[in-house]
C-alpha cells in the first residue's frame, strides 16, 4: 500500500466513524435536534451529551496535537491560526443557526441522512450546496485566503 493510499484509507475510515457517531448520537434525527433547540417546549438535553462526549475526547487530542510539529504520519498539522472575531464570523454563524433551527439539519447529519435515502435530506443538501456555491461566487477574497495558514 502506498503512502497516499494509506492516507486516503484513514480519511475514509474517519468519515465512517464520524457518520456512525452522528447516527448513534441522534444528530441525524431533525426531530431530536429541534427537541434540544426548543427550550420552551419539553426539552431534550441529549445533544449536550453529544457535545460533552465529543469535546472531552477532542480536548485531549488537540492538547496532544499542539505539542507536535507534524501528524503521526509525518505530514503537516493544519491547525487554524486566526484569532480575530470579525463580522463574517458572527453573521455567518447567526445565518447558519437560523437555518439549523428551521429544519433541524446541520451539514454532517444532512449528508448522512441523504446517504440513508431520505428525499428531504437530499433536497436540503442540494440547497446547502447552492448556498455554499453562492458564497464561493460572491466571496471577494482571493482564493485560499480564507484557508487558515499552515503553522
Amino acid at each position: 500500500m502506498t503512502r497516499n493510499t494509506f492516507l486516503r484509507t484513514t480519511e475514509c475510515a474517519v468519515g465512517l466513524i464520524f457518520g456512525w457517531g452522528l447516527m448513534l448520537s441522534g444528530m441525524t434525527d431533525p426531530g431530536k435536534v429541534l427537541g434540544f433547540l426548543d427550550l420552551a417546549g419539553p426539552w431534550d438535553p441529549s445533544l449536550a451529551f453529544v457535545m460533552g462526549g465529543a469535546i472531552a475526547v477532542g480536548f485531549a487530542a488537540f492538547a496532544l496535537a499542539r505539542q507536535r510539529t507534524g501528524s503521526l504520519l509525518g505530514g503537516a498539522l493544519h491547525l487554524p491560526a486566526r484569532k480575530d472575531i470579525d463580522r463574517p464570523l458572527v453573521i455567518g454563524a447567526l445565518l447558519f443557526g437560523a437555518g439549523w433551527g428551521l429544519a433541524g439539519f446541520c451539514p454532517g447529519p444532512a449528508l448522512v441522512t441523504m446517504a440513508s435515502g431520505e428525499p428531504k435530506a437530499l433536497l436540503f443538501v442540494a440547497a446547502m450546496l447552492g448556498g455554499m456555491a453562492l458564497h464561493a461566487l460572491t466571496d471577494r477574497e482571493t482564493p485560499g485566503a480564507r484557508q487558515a495558514p499552515l503553522r
Partner: peptide, 27 residues
C-alpha cells in the same frame, strides 16, 4: 426522547473521529 447513553456514546465517536483526523491526518 432523552437518550443520554446513546448520545454520549455517539459523541465519544465524534470526538474519536476528530482526534484521529488531527493526529493521524493533520486535518
Amino acid at each position: 426522547h432523552f437518550t443520554p447513553w446513546a448520545s454520549l456514546t455517539g459523541g465519544l465517536l465524534l470526538g474519536i473521529a476528530a482526534a484521529l483526523f488531527i493526529l493521524v491526518n493533520g486535518r
